[in-house]
Design a binder for these strands. Structure first.
Ligand SMILES: [Mn+2]
Ligand SMILES: [Mn+2]
Ligand SMILES: [Zn+2]
Ligand SMILES: [Zn+2]
Lengths: 138, 138
DNA sequence: CCGCTCGTCTGGAACTATTCTAAATCTCGT
DNA sequence: ACGAGATTTAGAATAGTTCCAGACGAGCGG
């Protein structure tokens, strides 16, 4: 999904973040894919466009965007953290064949809504991780 | 829960694993706690008993036990993987206050009823991770 | 438009978690 | 008890991420 840079800059400003080239580039890239890229993927993709973005900056930017709620990070077993500009609640399917991380429609199970487990422990957010096989891998 | 070493050895043999002191020690420790220890926790706990178990062996053993289905590993955001000898399906609550990982009784929620999502993707296992506050933290 | 102030970016070093290596040791079937 | 092959070990190597201190530049007040 191609979003023009002006909208992205508006998003950054709206969250009180300074508008910088690295931030716009990272956010644009993450918004353009549903592949849940790693920090390294982000660095590679952006530097392929002629820019030079240091590894440390990739992490800096990912952290500010995450703190601002524009991006969500997730840790999958073994390996690098992955990032998602799709911040509306949803679950993930980790394909055991190709390693891809795919989206799964949101379901609340009535838990987050109540905010409390039957035994009284309180719940802020929940995430379901499915270990299975994606459509591409049949 | 204290399980005697003979039963543990039986478990190892039943899964076709050779019975070694490190394996028995690691399995006994994991079976005795519900705290979901990290590899480092395991090493520390076992070496406190006078044994000397190398870091590499901790990982070797955790891997064999995991492959054998006697232990389950889980990755929590940021930080070391955690291990659980409680292998029956259940969910986890990650306390945002103290960092503890607590068990939550299993529920299937009717997702992937027959191991298949409504859209056809197949699911092997699923685990719900709740981000909330444990009872100790009120 | 200019200059100042911080927030941000950078390369590289440091750090943490995990894996690899090759040699020593041990388990268990025979 | 023997030997083959699995397991353990210390240490080096790797992967992912964070830290650092200096250079840079976004955006505000003038
Ligand atoms: Mn997603
Ligand atoms: Mn558990
Ligand atoms: Zn796949
Ligand atoms: Zn707690």
């Amino acid at each position: 999904m191609r979003i023009d840079d002006e909208s992205l800059k508006g998003l950054l400003r709206a969250r009180g973040l300074r508008v910088t080239e690295p931030r716009v580039a990272v956010l644009a890239y993450l918004a353009s894919t549903d592949r849940h890229p790693t920090a390294e993927d982000v660095e590679t993709a952006i530097n392929a466009n002629g820019q030079v973005l240091s590894r440390a900056s990739v992490y800096n930017v990912l952290h500010s965007l995450t703190r601002a709620g524009l991006v969500a990070g997730m840790s999958v077993t073994d390996g690098a953290a992955r990032y998602d500009a799709h911040v509306a609640p949803h679950h993930h399917l980790l394909c055991r064949t190709c390693g891809r991380v795919e989206d799964v429609p949101w379901q609340d199970f009535g838990i987050a809504e109540r905010g409390v487990l039957p035994d009284g422990r309180s719940v802020r957010t929940l995430a379901l991780t499915l270990d299975g096989v994606c459509n591409a891998c049949c």
